Computed example of a mutant assay.
Amino acid sequence: MAEKRDYYEILGIQKGASEDEIKKAFRKKARENHPDLHPDDPSYVEKFQEINEANEVLSDPEKRARYDQFGHAGVDPSYGGGAGGMDGFGGFGDMGDILENIFGGFGFGGGSTRNTANAPRRGSDIQETVTISFMDACKGKKQEVKLNRMTICEDCNGTGAAAGSSVEICPDCQGRGSIKTTQRTPFGAISSTKPCPHCGGKGKIVKNPCPKCRGGGRMRVQKTVSFDIPAGIDNGQTIRLGGQGDCGINGGPSGDLLLNVNVKAHPLFTREGYDIHCDIPVTYMEAVLGSEITVPTIDGDVKYNISEGTQTGTVFRLKGKGVKKIRRSERGDQYVKIYVEVPKNLTKKQKDLLKEFEASLSDKNYAKRQSFFEKLKAKLDF
């Protein structure tokens, strides 16, 4: 006969451990070493049996006292002590009862199974993409979208049964949607649950199904949903419409409709957050002499005076001419970048006039050019 391990060692506790410490140690070891968690390793059957045996003795004050005094011989007839024997060690009791205490009736041992077959369940969410213009994103608008969604069948009102008939409770599972099976093993009875094969896990049987929904109680229909696109929405953002998704099951709430917004590009404007950017070309003379120019905005054209000698790359701001912030009164700004367009395809006369004009200028007319060469000269002299 193989030498038996010490029961205290098996549970990982000291000899003077309290009842509460024994109980906690047993629960922990049982969870870690249950055979169902290690289906590919048969050694866990023996480990679990060993843990159960140790707990049977140490959790009973009388057996524990005999074990502390005589060791295994005090509690196991096979060791010759015969002092009281081992109650229940022939089959180790009902393993289902033990596991129900350990795991609270979930997963192992076939503890109580919650009746979820006919419980209300929320419907699924639906995702759609809507494409809108740049201006609609800035200003907001009313929009419609067509979608296919699950709705309660109007003919059977969601029961799935044809008119004049009713839904019956499954006689095999009594409406639970699952059945419990118990298997006797050398180390006890192990119970498990599985979907009821008779009703397919629904807990009910429709003998005369509704011809419109074919017994499902729900059907997919096309629906047009109207909604508001808020002013200020940006590309890639999502609008959530609560309760506009698929209808629920067994009276559960409907899911939501998630609308992913795709904003078309604009030929003049780009957007950064709530600010708008645009580039505007001006003529050589407008830049040199200064001028009143027309600037497009999302609210229409506005006039703006650029100063004499405006350079390419100059940026000015139009305060409050950007995008309205969602659900707020504030707006972003518009930033306008100037670039000077150099004339091309000049006639000989035009070129001569420009040369004459250029000859009349001096370094003081080119501040940046003069500064550049002064810095260059200073660097070379150094």
Rank of each mutant, 00 (worst) to 15 (best):
E3S: 13
K4G: 08
R5Y: 07
I10M: 03
I13F: 00
G16P: 05
K23I: 06
A25T: 01
R27D: 08
R27G: 07
K28C: 00
K29I: 07
D36P: 00
D41H: 12
E46L: 15
K47R: 15
Q49D: 09
I51C: 02
I51R: 00
I51D: 03
I51P: 01
A54Q: 01
P61W: 12
E62N: 14
E62K: 12
R66C: 09
Y67P: 08
A73M: 06
V75W: 00
P77R: 09
Y79H: 14
G82C: 08
A83M: 15
D87H: 12
G88V: 03
G88C: 08
F89I: 04
G90A: 10
M95V: 11
D97N: 11
N101A: 11
F106G: 00
G111C: 00
S112G: 08
R114K: 11
N115W: 07
N115D: 15
R121M: 12
R122F: 01
G123I: 09
D125R: 09
S133R: 02
D136W: 00
A137N: 03
C138H: 05
C138R: 03
G140F: 03
V145D: 09
L147K: 04
M150P: 00
M150E: 13
I152N: 11
C156H: 03
G158S: 08
E168M: 12
I169Y: 06
P171C: 08
C173V: 09
K180D: 06
F187D: 14
A189D: 10
H198S: 15
N208G: 00
P209Y: 02
P209W: 02
P211L: 03
G215V: 02
G216W: 06
V221R: 12
D228Q: 14
I229C: 00
N235Q: 03
G243V: 08
G248D: 01
N250M: 11
L258W: 01
L259V: 15
N262D: 15
L268Y: 14
E272H: 14
D275H: 14
H277N: 13
I280Y: 06
V282W: 13
E292F: 03
V295Q: 06
T297F: 00
G300F: 07
G300V: 09
Y304C: 05
S307N: 14
G309L: 08
G309R: 09
T314D: 07
R317Y: 02
K325R: 15
K325T: 15
R327S: 14
R327V: 06
Y335K: 11
V336E: 03
I338R: 10
N345Q: 11
N345L: 09
L354C: 04
K355M: 13
E356R: 03
L361R: 11
N365S: 14
K377A: 00
